[in-house]
Write a protein that binds this DNA or RNA. Structure first.
Length: 805
DNA sequence: ACATCCCGCCATGCC
DNA sequence: GGCATGGCGGGATGT
C-alpha cells in the first residue's frame, strides 16, 4: 500500500531503508520544536522536486542513516562515499543518461527561451540587463560536465542561479498538506555550495514565506502557496510604514522621507537594535519587497532602495553602509529575480541609467482584505492547520518578533523567532502546521501523500492558486487521505471519478472525468494555475516583452531617476498585455500555466480554456512498476490544458493519463508518434510526442509533485526508467527558461530517446549540473558531501580538527 | 571604470 | 567551546 500512494516525500525516503517515519507529527512538533534537531526523519526526507528517481542506490541514502545524525545538521560529514543528496538520485539518473544529450538539451533549453523571446525585439535599451540576467540564470549548468568544471564562470555560481536550482527542487505549489522538509545541509550539498549561500537564499525565501524555518538546519517548503498572502501583507505594512511616501520622495530627493522609514523601526525600535536580525537579510528582503508593492511604478532603483533601507540618519557611515546595503540588495534581488518577482531594468536618468528592479509579481490583491487573499491562496488550499498565513495572525505573531515590523505584524514574515538563535527551532503555532503533522502520519504508512481531486466547481480553489478549472481538477495531494487505500479521492462529485484503492505498485490508475469547462473564465483558468514554472516563465516572457515595450516607451519616458515614471507606462502596458496576471485580482500571479501551456503548445492558448473536452484522465497502474509506466497523458483535456511547461516543469495539477506503453496504442495521441485518433474523449495530444510509443515511460505533463515522487519511489528496475523519471520530477525551475519561442510541445522523453528535443524537459534540473554549482561539486554529487563546505569559520576550525563524523 | 556580487572571515547567540 | 547563522565587505569578475 504504502508504495502505492503517492508520496510527497522525497525519494530518499523511499530509498532510504528507513523511510518510515516513526515520528508522529504531533510528537515531533512538540519535541522537535524545542530541539531543532529533532526532526530527524523528516528532514531526511526532504522531497525534492527533482526527485531523484529512486535509484536503486540504497546506498545513496543519506549518510548512513543514522537517524540521529541525520536530523542533526550534518555537520561533520562523515565522509560517506555518497552522502545522500536530495538530488542524488536524479543526478545519478542523469548521469546515466547520455551526457551529451543532456548537455545539448540543457543548453538548448536554457538559452533558447530567452533568446528567442527577446531577440527580435528591438528593445535593447533598458532591458538589456534583464536579458542578461535571465541568461545568466538559465545559462548555467550544462557545462559542468565538460569543461565547466574547470571554470565555472562567476555567473554560474551566482546566487540567482543557485536560487533557481534551489527552487527547482521543490514544487511551487506543494500539496497542501504535505510538508516538504528541507535540510539546508542537504540542499547545500546537493547544490554543491556552501551553506552560507543557502542561508542567503533561504532567508529571502523565508521572508516571503516560501519556506519556513522549523529548526536548525530544517526548513519547510511552502512554495508559493502563501506568497500572495504574504505579499499582500507586506504591501499593507509597507503602506503603514509610509514606504510609499518615501519611495516617492526618494526618487526625487531622498530627503525627508527617507529618514523615517522603517529604519527607525529597524534600528531602534524594538529591535533592540542590536539584533543582527534586524539587519537580517530576511527583513531587508521584506522591506525591499514592500517598496515595490507600495510603489506606484513598482520599480525601485537600487539606489533608492538602499537609501531608504539604510537609516539615512547616519551620514557618517552612510557611504559604507550604502555600499553594503546595495550589496545585500543585489543578493535579495537575485533571489527575487529567480522567483520571477522582479526583473532588472534600468531607469534612465540624465546622467545615465540607474540599475533598478521592476516588480513582476502581483500588486493588487483581490481581497484587499488581507484575509481574503490569503484565504484564496493559502487558506483554501491549505487545511486549516496548514493555512499558514492566511491569517495574518500567524504572521503577525511572527512578525511581531521583529521590531522592524512592529508596525504591522504581518504574517508574511515569518519571523523566525528572533530569539531563536539559529539553532532554535522556531515553531510557530501555526506556522509549521503542516509539516509535521500530516506528514508523519503519512509517513507512517510510508509517507505517502495521496492525491486528491478536486472539482473545479468547488469553490475553493484548489490550492494555492487561483482557481483554474484545470487546477481544480487536478489532483492534489492530500495529507490525510481518508483512506490509506485510496490514492485519489475526489472531493467533489462532479469530476473526480475514481480513486484507486491502493495498489501495490506505484501504478495508479485514476479516472477522472474532465469537467467541461470550468465555470471559470478563461482567465480564471489561466490564472488558476498557480503559477508554476510555466506560468512564471510565461509571465516572464510577457514581461520581457512588455518590458521591452515599456522600455521603449520608457526610454523616452524615463527621466532621471524616476523610476516611477517609467513605471506607469510599463504598468499600463502590462495590464493590457497580460492584465490578468498582475492585475487581475484573482490571479495576481500571472497567467496560469495552462495558458502558458497553451501558448507553448501553440494551441490556442487563448482558447486554452475552452475546450475542455470531457476528458477523463486515466491513470494506468503499472503493475510492472515504473517501467511499465510509459505515459502519462491527459486524456480528455485539450492539449493545451496540459500544461507542460515548456520548461518541462511539472505542473502539479494536471490530470493525466498514465498509460502503459502497451496501452498506448489504445489511446489516441495526436502527438508525435502517435496517431491522432482523436476520438473525442481522448484528446489528442497536440504536443508532439517524440516517440510515443517508446516503451519506456514517459510522462507527459508534469506529474503532480506527489505523483512524481511516487513514481520515483517505486523502484525502478530498469535503468532506463530512471532518467526519465528524473525528468519527470524535474522541477520546474522558475522560469528561467521560458519556453522558447515555439511552443514546445510537451516533450516527452522516451527513455531511450531521451533525446531531445524537448528542451523543456531538459530543464536544467535534468542535468545534474543543474543542481550543482559549477565548480563546487566535483563531478559527482556526492563529492561535496563529505565535508560540506564549512563556512569559513568552520573551516578554520576544521583546520584544527578535521571534521569528524 | 563601473556594476555585480562571490567568497569566506568573523561576529552573534544558543547550547 | 562548539556550532548554526548570517553580517559584512574585500576584491574578483563581468561589461
Amino acid at each position: 500500500m504504502p508504495q502505492m500512494e503517492v508520496e510527497c516525500l522525497a525519494l530518499k525516503d523511499l530509498t532510504s531503508p528507513r523511510k518510515s517515519f516513526p515520528v508522529d507529527p504531533e510528537e515531533d512538533g512538540g519535541q522537535s520544536e524545542q530541539k531543532e534537531n529533532i526532526y530527524t526523519d523528516w528532514r531526511r526526507s526532504t522531497p525534492l522536486k527533482s526527485a531523484e528517481s529512486a535509484v536503486p542506490t540504497s546506498a545513496m541514502n543519506r549518510k548512513g542513516a543514522t537517524p540521529d545524525l541525520a536530523h542533526i545538521t550534518p555537520i561533520k560529514p562523515t565522509s560517506l562515499p555518497e552522502p545522500w543528496t536530495p538530488t542524488a538520485n536524479l543526478k545519478m539518473l542523469i548521469s546515466a543518461a547520455s551526457p551529451d544529450i543532456r548537455d545539448r538539451e540543457m543548453k538548448k533549453v536554457l538559452f533558447r527561451p530567452i533568446e528567442n523571446e527577446k531577440p527580435p525585439s528591438p528593445v535593447t535599451v533598458v532591458e538589456d540587463t534583464e536579458i542578461e540576467d535571465s541568461c545568466q540564470f538559465e545559462a548555467v549548468e550544462e557545462e559542468d560536465d565538460a569543461d565547466a568544471d574547470k571554470k565555472p564562470s562567476r555567473k554560474q555560481k551566482s546566487l540567482g542561479l543557485l536560487c533557481q536550482k534551489f527552487l527547482a527542487l521543490y514544487p511551487d505549489y506543494p500539496p497542501p498538506h504535505s510538508s516538504i522538509w528541507i535540510s539546508l545541509d542537504e540542499v547545500a550539498t546537493s547544490l554543491g555550495v556552501e551553506r552560507r549561500r543557502i542561508y542567503d537564499i533561504v532567508n529571502v525565501l523565508e521572508s516571503l514565506m516560501i519556506v519556513g524555518r522549523i529548526a536548525k538546519n530544517s526548513y519547510t517548503w511552502y512554495g508559493r502557496q502563501r506568497l500572495e498572502a504574504t505579499l499582500e501583507d507586506l504591501q499593507r505594512r509597507g503602506r503603514q510604514q509610509g514606504y510609499h511616501l518615501q519611495m516617492e520622495v526618494a526618487t526625487e530627493a531622498r530627503e525627508a522621507g527617507a529618514g523615517r522609514e522603517d529604519d527607525g523601526a529597524e534600528g531602534d525600535a524594538g529591535n533592540a537594535g542590536g539584533n543582527r536580525k534586524d539587519k537580517s537579510l530576511r527583513i531587508m528582503s521584506q522591506k525591499f519587497v514592500m517598496l515595490f508593492l507600495v510603489s506606484k511604478t513598482q520599480t525601485v532603483t537600487l539606489d533608492a532602495a538602499a537609501k531608504i533601507l539604510i537609516e539615512e540618519s547616519q551620514d557618517s557611515s552612510s557611504h559604507s553602509k550604502y555600499k553594503t546595503k546595495v550589496r545585500r540588495l543585489y543578493d535579495i534581488a537575485n533571489v527575487l529575480t529567480s522567483l520571477d518577482l522582479i526583473k532588472k531594468v534600468h531607469v534612465r536618468e540624465e546622467r545615465g541609467r540607474k540599475p533598478a528592479f521592476k516588480w513582476l509579481g502581483p500588486v493588487e490583491f483581490k481581497n484587499s482584505g488581507n484575509a481574503g487573499n490569503t484565504v484564496n491562496m493559502a487558506a483554501v488550499t491549505l487545511p486549516e492547520a496548514t493555512r499558514p498565513m492566511a491569517g495574518q495572525d500567524l504572521g503577525k505573531a511572527k512578525m511581531a518578533r521583529h521590531a522592524s515590523f512592529n508596525i504591522t505584524p504581518t504574517s508574511v514574515a515569518i519571523q523566525r523567532q528572533v530569539s531563536s538563535a539559529p539553532s532554535s527551532p522556531r515553531r510557530e503555532p501555526t506556522g509549521l502546521p503542516y509539516q509535521p503533522v500530516d506528514y508523519s502520519k503519512k509517513t507512517a504508512s510510508s509517507n505517502v501523500c495521496r492525491l486528491q481531486f478536486r472539482n473545479s466547481t468547488d469553490s475553493n480553489r484548489p490550492t494555492c492558486s487561483s482557481s483554474s478549472p484545470l487546477r481544480q481538477s487536478h489532483p492534489t495531494l492530500l495529507a490525510n487521505p481518508p483512506h490509506p487505500d485510496y490514492l485519489f479521492t475526489h472531493s467533489s462529485p462532479p469530476h473526480c471519478l475514481a480513486y484507486l484503492p491502493s495498489l501495490s505498485q506505484p501504478s495508479v490508475v485514476m479516472l477522472y472525468r474532465a469537467q467541461e469547462k470550468p465555470d471559470q473564465t478563461p482567465e480564471g483558468q489561466r490564472s488558476s494555475r498557480p503559477e508554476s514554472d510555466e506560468g512564471r516563465k510565461r509571465r516572464r516572457e510577457e514581461r520581457d516583452e512588455e518590458g521591452t515595450a515599456v522600455k521603449k516607451k520608457g526610454t523616452s519616458v524615463l527621466e532621471d531617476g524616476d523610476e516611477m515614471r517609467a513605471e506607469p507606462l510599463g504598468k499600463a502596458s502590462e495590464c493590457s498585455q497580460r492584465g490578468n496576471a498582475r492585475t487581475s485580482p484573482s490571479h495576481p500571479e500571472g497567467p496560469s500555466r495552462a495558458q502558458a501551456l497553451d501558448e507553448s503548445l501553440g494551441g490556442d492558448s487563448s482558447s486554452g480554456s475552452e475546450p475542455v473536452q470531457p476528458s477523463h484522465y486515466l491513470y494506468v497502474p503499472n503493475n510492472a512498476g515504473l517501467n511499465g509506466l510509459n505515459f502519462l497523458l491527459s486524456a480528455g483535456q485539450p492539449p493545451a490544458s496540459l500544461a507542460l511547461p515548456p520548461s518541462g516543469v511539472p505542473t502539479l495539477a494536471l490530470p493525466y493519463v498514465l498509460v502503459p506503453s502497451a496501452a498506448l496504442p489504445h489511446y489516441p495521441l495526436v502527438a508525435g508518434g502517435l496517431q491522432p485518433q482523436g476520438s473525442d474523449g481522448h484528446s489528442n495530444l497536440s504536443f508532439s510526442l517524440p516517440a510515443v510509443v517508446s516503451p519506456a515511460h514517459f510522462m507527459m505533463g508534469a506529474a503532480p509533485y506527489s505523483m512524481a515522487a511516487e513514481i520515483s519511489r517505486s523502484p525502478l528496475p530498469s535503468p532506463t526508467a530512471t532518467p526519465e523519471q528524473s525528468r519527470l520530477y524535474v522541477p520546474a525551475t522558475n522560469a528561467p527558461h521560458s519556453p522558447s519561442g515555439p511552443r514546445q510541445t510537451v516533450s516527452i522523453n522516451t527513455p531511450e530517446l531521451l533525446t531531445p528535443h524537448t528542451p523543456k524537459e531538459t530543464t536544467p534540473s535534468a542535468s545534474k549540473a543543474f543542481f550543482q554549482t559549477p565548480g563546487t561539486l566535483g563531478g559527482v554529487v556526492s563529492s561535496v558531501p563529505a565535508a560540506r563546505k564549512r563556512g569559513s569559520a568552520q573551516r578554520r576550525l576544521d583546520v584544527g580538527h578535521p571534521p569528524t563524523g
